[in-house]
Every structure is written in C-alpha cells, then in structure tokens.
C-alpha cells in the first residue's frame, strides 16, 4: 500500500450507463497540499469527490485516503475526512449552533474537547454572533462557512470541498479562501473542486479534468506554460467579427472572445504581425494588440478544444 501521498488514486473508473464519468484516473496528492480539481460542469468532479469520500463505489481502480482504501475501509475514511457537498448539507431549520452540535455528535467529538473546538470554528468563520440563528436565515457566504465549520468539527486530516463557492458572492469567496490558507498552515490536506479559474490559480497544484479524464496536473504557473502557445490579445471595435475572421488564418490554434477584445493562440511567436496584417487586409479595424501570457482560462479552453478534435 503506497504511503507517499495522503491521497493516492490509481486507475479509478466510474460510469453511469453509457456515460463515463471518471475515466482511468491516476493522481497523487501530498500532505499539506491545496489541490484543485478544475473542470467545467459535468466533467466528473462531483463523482470523483464521492468516490474518494467512499460514498460511491468505483467500477474499477482503487484509491487510498490517509492510508485507508476506499474499497475496503470506507468507515475508517469517514473518520479521517471532512466533506462538504455543493449544497453545504445544512439543516436550515436548525440553528447554527444546533447544526454544529449535531455533526459533533455524529463524529463523537468528546464533550471535553467540544466547547473549545466549537468556539474556534465559530471564531474563524465569524459566525459567533449568529450562533442562535436558523441556518436557513444565513446569507450564502455564511451558510458556506457554517458548512465548512461542520465539516471540520472532528479535525479531519483531509478536507474535500465540492465546488464550495458555487453561487457565493466574491467577497465571501475571498474570505473563504483565506480560511482555507489558514487550514493549510495546520497541515490539513485540501482537495477542492471548482469551475472558477481564478480560484484554481490559488491552489498549490491543479488538475484539469474534462469529460472524466484528467488532462494535466501541475502548479497553476506550470500548467499555464505547459502548452507551446503564443497568446496575442487583440482589441477591436467589433471583436466578435474580427475573431471570426482570425479563426481561419494559418497558424491560428484557437480564438476566444472577451468583450471588446479577443485572444488568439498562435503556433509560433512570429506570426502575430502577419495576423494583424491579414485582419487589416480584410478591412477589419484593429485598435491595438499585445503579447500576453496565456491565462489558465486560455489554457483550459485550448486543452478542452484540442481534446475534442
């Protein structure tokens, strides 16, 4: 049994009927990492989370969480992990305190440790003033923090967060990530899934997943550099039309429009001037252009598109 990583996944596969949700997944996450599973909706992120939390059985493959097998030691895994599903899993008709105590009871947190732990969790999540409030009456951001507090009540080794910031306002999202960084200092391993690429940038390592397949894993910076692309950002009054025109040109790998500008992925650096020239020949006005570093979004879109070809 491997011990190198806190999470070790080998050949994990799961399909629902004809639809392969997770396709031969291999991955290793080390202690204290903040690993981001990045992919569009329907890529298989939630299925991976559920498989790793041992609440769903894989068709084949195996994974170890903190040394326990998801196939054979599901009950032990449940004591070692914290898990927060997309919908936070709160009882809206119970108060903040009642929710926390309920989960503390399920995890059998001893009565002696309990008060200090609850106070700390309420403190870092800024929920202390809302102890007596019904969970249903909290804002989205507060619900999310309460969900996190409940998932942390038994001080798990590994924390699984399934799209934790889905539908939460930007300020609360930033707060939430601050909490996650604090947790990292305590050597908690965090495995988070997200469809937001700005969040992916905050992870120590990410895995891009598309249609159940893990396409690449590395630090966000390295993932960005991993593709041999030169990225040009072009401003145009009619960006959509210009992008459409650029699509067919030689050397253009990919085009994505962002409002009044668009990114063109080129096979080589030297091609930029030729593209601009060609656009002007076609009578398309170009305001400005510059070389940019591909963002994760560019990389992701490029990878997804090329994998679909």
């Amino acid at each position: 049994m491997p011990d190198a990583g806190v999470i070790t996944i080998t050949g994990l596969t799961k399909s629902f009927g004809d639809n392969i949700a997770v396709d031969d997944l291999h991955l290793e996450v080390r202690r204290g990492e903040l690993f981001g599973l990045v992919g569009p909706d329907g890529a298989g992120k939630t299925t991976i989370m559920r498989l790793l939390a041992a609440i769903m059985s894989p068709d084949s493959g195996e994974a170890w969480i903190a040394g326990s097998s998801i196939l054979h030691e599901g009950e032990r895994i449940k004591e070692k992990i914290g898990y927060m599903s997309q919908r936070f899993g709160l009882y809206e008709d119970l108060t903040v305190m009642e929710n926390i105590i309920f989960y503390a009871d399920l995890y059998e947190v001893s009565k002696k440790e309990r008060p200090a732990r609850i106070e700390r969790l309420l403190g870092f999540s800024n929920l202390t003033p809302f102890k007596g409030r019904l969970a249903g009456k909290l804002s989205g951001g507060m619900k999310q923090k309460l969900g996190l507090a409940c998932a942390l009540i038994h001080t798990p080794e590994v924390l699984f967060l399934d799209e934790p910031t889905n539908g939460v306002d930007p300020v609360s999202r930033r707060d939430f990530w601050r909490i996650l960084y604090d947790l990292l200092k305590e050597q908690v391993t965090i495995f988070v899934s997200t469809a937001y690429l700005d969040e992916a940038e905050r992870c120590t390592r990410i895995g891009l997943i598309h249609k159940g397949r893990l396409i690449t894993t590395d630090t966000p910076a390295k993932v960005r550099k991993s593709i041999p692309l030169s990225m040009v950002e072009i401003w145009a009054p009619d960006a959509r039309k210009a992008a459409e025109a650029a699509k067919g040109m030689a050397g253009v790998k990919d085009v994505s429009v962002y409002g009044n500008r668009f990114h063109v992925a080129l096979a080589e650096v030297g091609l930029t001037d030729r593209i601009i020239e060609q656009l002007k020949e076609k009578g398309i006005a170009v305001i400005d252009h510059r070389q940019v570093l591909p963002s994760l979004e560019d990389v992701f879109i490029h990878i997804v598109r090329s994998s679909e070809l």
């Binding site: 609440i55 009950e75 927060m84 899993g89 709160l90």
Partner: peptide, 13 residues
C-alpha cells in the same frame, strides 16, 4: 432533497 443525506453519508453514521 436538501443535500444533507450526502453529508450524513460521509459521517461515521
């Protein structure tokens, strides 16, 4: 419906 079932499943319950 409210998603707590999934949350209960990951506890040692």
């Amino acid at each position: 419906e409210i998603g707590t079932m999934e949350q209960l499943m990951v506890t040692p319950l």
